[in-house]
Design a protein around this nucleic acid. Structure first.
Length: 228
DNA sequence: TGCCAGGCCGGGT
DNA sequence: ACCCGGCATGGC
């Protein structure tokens, strides 16, 4: 899919290189990936600030925390009870199965790391792919709500396309021989899509007047069409 | 004020 | 294999 490679150049030219994911350490990235589920990132930042202030931004320390305490610290991120449970189910695997060592989880003997992550209650496809792409160094494309909207707006997929349809589409495009298989390109691609999503493809404000991807919109009907 | 944000699970068809 | 209700805070 040639349009996908052209799309990157357009986005990159507009926004510049994005240094994603926001997070100082791989562990912080994993925590953020769970906390940001259906949640604004600024709320996640408050929660992470609380965790840092409590000095539990480290696997064993966080796992030692009672679920109630953990929930209280991450309260600003919303869904704090479910997310506390989800963090703990991830931490349990990380601590008890991999000796609290993220490197062992991501680059150890586990044959299929993605499947292992998906087996954790609270980690779905997007969270797993975010961890793989931004906390370890796996070429795993992340699909999010923005990606869905953007792709449907451009008719790069049909309305019934699910997570793995889009993932396959993107990965085969980026795996094309004309594209250097640099991790940075995979990471920045998703980051660029989020920029488009935030600025030009919100559910409430679908305007694409200033969108750098405007040249790639389907012809004929170039009004400001709704996403759905 | 009401709607939305970088999902996922469990139960129901 | 989908579809839906529930989960919850902070910003505009």
């Amino acid at each position: 899919m040639k349009a996908l490679r052209r799309a990157y150049d357009l986005m990159r030219a507009r926004f510049g290189h994005q240094d994603w994911w926001p997070g100082d350490t791989p562990f912080e990235v994993c925590v953020g990936a769970i906390l940001t589920q259906n949640t604004n990132w600024t709320n996640v930042e408050r929660a992470i600030a609380n965790l840092r202030a409590a000095r539990v931004l480290e696997p064993r320390a966080m796992f030692a925390l009672p679920e109630m305490k953990l929930a209280n610290l991450i309260r600003p991120a919303g869904y704090f009870n479910v997310k506390a449970r989800r963090l703990r189910s991830f931490l349990k695997v990380l601590v008890e199965e991999f000796g609290a060592d993220l490197d062992r989880l991501f680059h150890g003997e586990t044959p299929d790391v993605r499947e292992r992550l998906l087996a954790v209650k609270g980690i779905g496809p997007e969270t797993a792919d975010s961890m793989l792409l931004y906390a370890s160094s796996h070429h795993s494309f992340v699909i999010d709500a923005y990606t869905h909207r953007i792709f449907q707006r451009h008719r790069w997929c049909d309305t019934r396309a699910g997570y793995h349809d889009l993932k396959d589409l993107c990965e085969s495009a980026l795996n094309h021989q004309a594209v250097p298989r640099r991790l940075d390109y995979w990471q920045d691609y998703h980051a660029q899509l989020v920029m488009i999503g935030k600025h030009f493809c919100r559910t409430s404000k679908p305007s694409c007047e200033q969108c750098p991807l405007r040249p790639l919109l389907p012809k004929k009907k170039r009004t400001n069409e709704a996403v759905e």
